[in-house]
Design a protein around this nucleic acid. Structure first.
Lengths: 121, 121
DNA sequence: TTTATGTTTCGTCGTATGTCGAAATAACGT
DNA sequence: ACGTTATTTCGACATACGACGAAACATAAA
């Protein structure tokens, strides 16, 4: 029950749900998600921490960057089904489609440049 | 997205999740759920209102009683899948099993007697 | 060893949420 | 019609949550 409520509480925020959907296409670092949502880096970090605690995302550290991605197939069944449900329910949502578009634009940019811009703000 | 977030927010409270699971076996009136959780009637009513707004429960009025139940098969797909996910994930949870036990005990009692006891408190 | 940079942690602020009790509503029983 | 009773609405309170900026942390670059 505890683990399950961690998942439902993690899914109860729109930005966290959008984050999960943004990760469908592959891993992202914090500053890319920050750019996508226009939120403060600390806020995005907190959201990712909550998703991580619910096991809805995994992370990988590479130098200064920390990449987040959807969990592997070995993840708990409740987690995988939650993600499937989210993706299936929102795959055609206008805002999600807009996120996807903007994300492809973000992915074309050099991460180094993108992160530098984040810091200048 | 709006409708989906209504569902996730409705599922983000433990008492509301327990309510959904309690409704698996059939409809319940407010005072029966109140008895099950030991909460104030007004609190239970609020929870049911939130579940109703998310379309996770339907209601039926019969005299002074209002019975709540899980939605019919015609409900939105996201709703049905959400409930399936909840039930499947928590069917063997200890607390849910305990709720189920207590619920069968509650169902054996006369609803009129039960509601009267609620009001005496 | 400094300096720069990506991320997290911490403190704070405003808002949202869960809970209760009291009052309002609606429908039955007398 | 009047009181009884199941439910909801309202008002109040404490707590939880999402947001930010500043500071701390960790690692790469110079």
């Amino acid at each position: 029950m505890r683990a399950f409520m961690n998942i439902t509480k993690a899914l109860a925020d729109e930005n966290r749900v959008r984050t999960l959907l943004a990760l469908r296409k592959g891993e992202l670092c914090v500053c890319q998600i920050t750019e996508l949502f226009g939120l403060a880096p600390s806020t995005v970090s907190k959201h990712l921490s909550i998703l991580h605690q619910a096991e809805l995302v995994e992370s990988r550290k590479e130098g200064r960057w920390i990449y987040y991605r959807l969990p592997k197939p070995e993840a708990p069944v409740a987690v995988r089904e939650a993600i499937d449900w989210v993706v299936k329910s929102l795959a055609t949502d206008p805002r999600v489609l807009a996120d996807t578009r903007q994300l492809t634009s973000i992915l074309k940019q050099d991460p180094v440049e993108l992160c530098r811009r984040q810091c200048h703000k």
